[in-house]
Amino acid sequence: MDAVAALPIHEIPVRRIAVRPVTAEPAWVRRALIALALAFFGLFLLLPLAAVFVEALRKGWAVYLAALVEPDALAALKLTLLAAAIAVPLNLVFGVAAAWAIAKFSFRGKALLLTLIDLPFSISPVVAGLGLVLLFGGSGWFGAWLAAHEVKVLFAVPGIVLATVLVTFPFVARELVPLMQAQGREEEEAAVVLGASGWRTFWHVTLPNVKWGLLYGVILTNARAMGEFGAVSVVSGHIRGQTTTLPLHVEILYNEYQFSAAFAVASLLALLALVTLVVKHAIERRGDFAALRRGSLK
């Protein structure tokens, strides 16, 4: 400092002022990275999505609509809706119960319980389906009993529902547990101390706090339930019009080289995916949900 001060004013070394902040990259690097990222995005995400709709409409609207109103397609749609209508509420109730126990109380074995809840995320759907075959198949654990009572699980609707419930098992719990943990339990404790019953506390204190997280978990569960392929494929038996869900119907049509029809049915599922993403994005942009979720990540 002194050395500089001692210099005559015109001899103070002048440095060029940086035009960009020190925490930003040069413009060309920025542009190159954006271009590379968008190229990957276009190639791997946008193009497959576009392909579904273009291929679906390749032979015109008449063929497209005919593929959708065909009886086997409608039966598949009905079964898909049924499986989701059973799987979503079941896993919703489970998710709420699990989140209440895990987030509001401390007990031994909590980490193990959380790991086991995550299990369906990491098991191959085909292996999950195999597990159901080994339980309910002819030589399975419950096979003889089911045969004696003439109950069909495998290659029938109950098997498809069970497979759907199994693969969508963790979604609601996984969303709710961290949210309710982040929220703590002071508000509920206050309600209970002031005389509210457990149910009333849950409905009026807990639920309003986590409703967006709940909805978030439900739409993820629903998307997976309607789109599940591997596990359902193993237990379905592929009986056309009876045990085929929409994704299985797509497979059958595709393997019969009815490509336009296959893509027409697939476009229905793609639309479902897009609606899911829009709702998901809308929830994520809600300030209260975003703040809570950020809190839950800490």
Binding site: P48, E55, A223, G227, E251, A266, L269, L277
Partner: peptide, 27 residues
Amino acid sequence: GKRLVDALIDLPFALPTAVAGIALTAL
């Protein structure tokens, strides 16, 4: 288009795998 890209990143979570399979094959 940043918001669109951000929202569509999750497409593989939401798109049924069979649909992804036949779309990629068509490509």
